[in-house]
């Protein structure tokens, strides 16, 4: 058979023209019902395991540097692994405060043993006995420990000076004003009593967070002595909170 004959035969063939109207209608309904179904994930399914594996891998690789755990407990944990910090703790130091900023932790470590025994309970005793606040005894040694969360190490450790600063005239006026307005002073100290002297005392150091920085600031405190005739009272004033924290009758002194 020649190709032309085959083509002619194929063109002449009577082709079946068959339809299944019932099947056609049923399929139509089944297809249009697909619009009511919630959208399927379609191509997402084959991609899902790969995406999950990639996500786990990325978290595993970058977790320490991109998503570091930055909490107080971790800061202490890292600090206590440092030999210098351990040495301070072994000498009786305590961690007074902790702050977090910019992927770093800051710990204020204070050596308890350096605190003068006489000043432990009250500053008043020292002043009365010694007569001068400047001789209150050695300042408690305070250290600022900087912890680097990314490097998981102590990146800096330095002793923080806590100078016994004097008050400016303006600060003395503020202290006097706090004293005059204090109900405790009004109750304990006679109205006629005069302010004999105002002296600074060793302040408590505090960690203060400023944006991404953490600074050590002293909380300024003053001792104020009231005198009437030969009687003396002593008060402790916190400039930060503008409060008289304590007032005490010291007794009768020499004229």
């Amino acid at each position: 058979m020649r190709e032309e004959d085959l083509i002619q035969r194929l063109n002449k063939i009577e082709r079946p023209e068959i339809e299944l109207p019932a099947q056609r209608q049923k399929l139509r309904r089944v297809l249009l019902r697909q619009y009511d179904r919630p959208p399927s994930f379609g191509l997402a399914w084959p991609v899902l395991p790969v995406a999950l594996a990639l996500a786990v891998f990325l978290v595993w690789v970058f977790q320490p540097s991109v998503f570091p755990r930055t909490d107080v407990a971790l800061a202490k944990e890292i600090a206590l692994q440092d030999a210098r910090v351990r040495s301070l703790i072994d000498r009786g130091a305590i961690i007074k405060e902790t702050e977090l900023a910019d992927n770093k932790g800051y710990l204020l470590v204070q050596l308890a043993e350096s605190r003068p025994a006489a000043a432990e309970g009250s500053v008043f005793f020292s002043i009365r006995e010694q007569g001068s606040p400047s001789s209150l005894g050695p300042t408690p040694a305070v250290f600022l420990v900087e912890v680097d969360f990314r490097g998981k190490k102590v990146s800096d450790l330095k002793e923080v000076p806590n100078p016994l600063s004097s008050f400016s005239p303006a600060e003395e006026e503020v202290i006097k004003a706090i004293s005059q307005q204090s109900d405790v002073v009004k109750k304990e100290v006679p109205f006629e009593a005069e302010i004999k002297e105002i002296q600074p005392i060793h302040s408590q150091l505090k960690l203060v967070k400023k944006g991404s920085r953490v600074e050590v600031k002293p909380e300024k405190e003053a001792v104020i002595i009231y005198k009437q005739d030969n009687k003396e009272w002593q008060g402790k004033i916190n400039l930060g909170s503008s409060r008289v924290e304590k007032i005490e009758f010291l007794g009768e002194g020499d004229q």
Partner: peptide
């Protein structure tokens, strides 16, 4: 087949029709 539907009958008739096209 749906209730009251004629799909089975339809297929049977279509099969007969198809078989008549022996040359095809």
């Amino acid at each position: 087949p749906e209730s009251g539907g004629n799909l089975l009958e339809e297929i049977s008739l279509a099969q007969e029709k198809l078989e008549r096209h022996q040359d095809f």
